[in-house]
Simulated scan of single mutants.
Amino acid sequence: MSKAPSSPLEDDGAPHYLGHRERLRERFRKAGDAALADYELLELVLFRAMPRRDVKPIAKALIARFGSFAEVVAARPERLAEIPNLGDASITELKLIEAAARRLTKSAIEKRPSMGSFSAVVDYCRTAMAFNDREQFRILFLDKKNQLIADEVQGTGTVDHTPVYPREIMRRALELNATALILVHNHPSGDPTPSTADIHLTHQIIAVGKPLNVLVHDHLIIGRHGHASFKGLQLI
């Protein structure tokens, strides 16, 4: 009985991973992403950046380090660069996927009343922030029709704190002619339960905005596996 070749080339001289790549692509074309494990979906992303390399070990290393497809594409570039054999081109491909997901979810809340599409707002905020490993505070600025004027990150901090300045928030709201805000920040711990400091800060922002006729419609806290709404919890 002949022994299987130990070379990285198949019998026809082609690298062994080329057949694997085409099989993955075909499975994706026929059955969609549900037919693929997270590491296999990452392989498809990495194929373009590494056309002459077996990317399966790299994809599996990414999942082992970060936990899931979503957490990989949301990871900061400097953390991705810690993975052996993952170069700038591959990191760019991953960040393009993240940017595309953010654009898709943001399109669902643009040019329409944000308060009338609450689930779309949550989906967008989860895409933008759920897997960040640092706390980030962002604000959705709304006009009198509750349509989105601007979406801005006001600050990025540590794993459990971001400095936020209520008067600066209101100054920016007046610059944009915004009449309402949705406050959003993430909890890298994964637990979206509001802290006492979160509640106090929210009430401070509401108090500063009241004489300026700038309302705070809600404050969303985004975690890896869920979210909390101050309005839903009757905290505002």
Rank of each mutant, 00 (worst) to 15 (best):
S90L: 13
D54M: 05
G223E: 04
Q136Y: 11
L181N: 08
A31R: 13
S195Q: 14
A108D: 11
L24F: 06
H16G: 02
K106T: 11
A34R: 05
G209T: 09
K210D: 15
V73E: 07
H20T: 02
A75C: 14
T196Y: 10
A89R: 15
R126V: 12
A89L: 15
P192F: 09
R138S: 06
K231F: 04
N186S: 07
S7T: 14
L183D: 03
L104V: 15
V216Q: 03
V73Q: 05
V164I: 08
I182M: 02
D12S: 00
A74L: 09
D11I: 00
Q154S: 04
R224M: 06
D88G: 12
T196M: 00
L18K: 06
K56S: 15
D12E: 07
L174S: 00
R53E: 12
E98Y: 01
M1D: 01
R134A: 12
E93R: 14
V121C: 09
E71Q: 06
I83P: 05
R102M: 14
V122A: 01
L104Y: 13
M115L: 13
D151M: 09
E82P: 04
E168W: 07
G223P: 12
L212N: 11
E93K: 13
P188M: 05
A173Y: 13
D151I: 11
H225G: 07
S229T: 06
L94G: 06
A81W: 02
I236Q: 08
V153M: 11
T196A: 10
H16W: 01
V214H: 00
I149P: 03
L183V: 11
F118I: 14
V159D: 03
F118Y: 12
Y39G: 04
E78A: 02
L62A: 08
G190Q: 10
E10A: 14
H16P: 02
S68L: 10
K145L: 11
A49I: 14
F28R: 06
A37H: 14
E78Q: 01
P57F: 03
R65V: 10
A99M: 15
I139D: 02
T196Q: 10
A108W: 01
S68P: 06
R53Q: 15
L18T: 03
H161V: 04
E168K: 04
L9C: 05
V153F: 03
D133A: 07
P77F: 03
A197V: 15
H225Y: 04
R65W: 08
G223Q: 03
A150Y: 09
